[in-house]
């Protein structure tokens, strides 16, 4: 079962390894009664997300589900720990969305930063709309996250000064849409998004996320994305199975298929 129920002997066997586990053990010792439903993501949600990338005939054993569940919690802890340290250094009390994004890019999850920034921006936009304050910059200081413009060396310069599309494939057919959505008042923290070494071609995953603005067809777009995910999983599997060549480039490449199917 889950490691939360490990006997003490089991929990101490990883002592030679990293600090994350040590921290977790400490927490488990300090608060041994953390309920499983507080410690892990709901299994049904995890399975749903897993199924999206697996082909229909794939099966998932219970132990694999539980392991992934554990991994998700560890992932959140891992990133949060890094974000927390940054807040500590800068003597801030609140971990913001930007801290989380920053921690991700620092810990190697650079590829996530851009789609997440787009997602966050969209969230702010529609939250603002829902609150009837759409005239304000989305996610303005009222939300706490945008108030602190820390200019960390990691953070690239704000996108404001960048012409829309400068970093993306020039012939992307959603260019104008993108420009019209983002050409106005720039999102306050969109500036986080672009680690420069990522610009490697037209199959740039994050811009796929622009499509929901296109209206009706966005479900189809996501279906293509996830459906494509299922379809290309075996292929990427053959490529990555035996080797340790899992680089950002490989990941970027693995997203080509859904794009190909979508861009017709």
């Amino acid at each position: 079962m889950a490691s939360g129920f490990l006997p003490p002997g089991g929990a101490t066997n990883g002592g030679s390894n990293g600090g994350a586990q040590a921290a977790q053990q400490q927490q488990q010792q300090a608060a041994p009664m953390i309920r499983e439903q507080d410690r892990l993501m709901p299994i049904a949600n995890v399975i749903r997300i897993m199924r999206r990338v697996l082909p229909p005939h794939a099966k998932i054993s219970d132990d694999a589900k539980e392991t992934i569940q554990e991994c998700v919690s560890e992932y959140i802890s891992f990133i949060t720990g890094e974000a927390n340290e940054r807040c500590q250094r800068e003597q801030r009390k609140t971990i913001t969305a930007e801290d989380v994004l920053w921690a991700m890019s620092r810990l190697g999850f650079d590829d996530y930063v851009e789609p997440l920034s787009v997602y966050l921006h969209r969230y702010r936009e529609f939250e603002g709309e829902a609150r009837g304050v759409v005239g304000l910059p989305p996610g303005g200081s009222a939300r706490g996250g945008a108030g602190d413009h820390h200019h960390h060396p990691m953070a690239p310069p704000p996108v404001k000064s960048r012409p829309p599309g400068a970093a993306m494939a020039p012939h992307h057919h959603d260019m104008q849409l993108h420009a019209s959505m983002y050409g106005g008042p720039p999102p306050p923290h969109h500036g986080f998004v672009m680690p420069h070494h990522h610009h490697q071609g037209g199959q740039y995953l994050p811009y796929h996320y622009e499509h929901p603005y296109g209206g009706e067809h966005h479900h189809a777009a996501m279906a293509a994305y996830y459906g494509g995910g299922a379809a290309y999983a075996p292929g990427s599997g053959e490529g990555s199975g035996g080797s340790a060549s899992h680089t950002a480039t490989t990941q970027g490449g693995s997203f080509e298929n859904p794009f190909a199917s979508y861009n017709k």
Partner: peptide, 28 residues
């Protein structure tokens, strides 16, 4: 330590990406 309301929003999507990536590699 306080946590901005937006931070879990970012994580909800990040965890999706993370689960998808881990699952794909496990499937390999």
């Amino acid at each position: 330590r306080m946590i901005s309301g937006e931070a879990p929003v970012v994580f909800s999507k990040a965890c999706e990406l993370f689960i998808a990536e881990l699952t794909r590699r496990a499937w390999a």
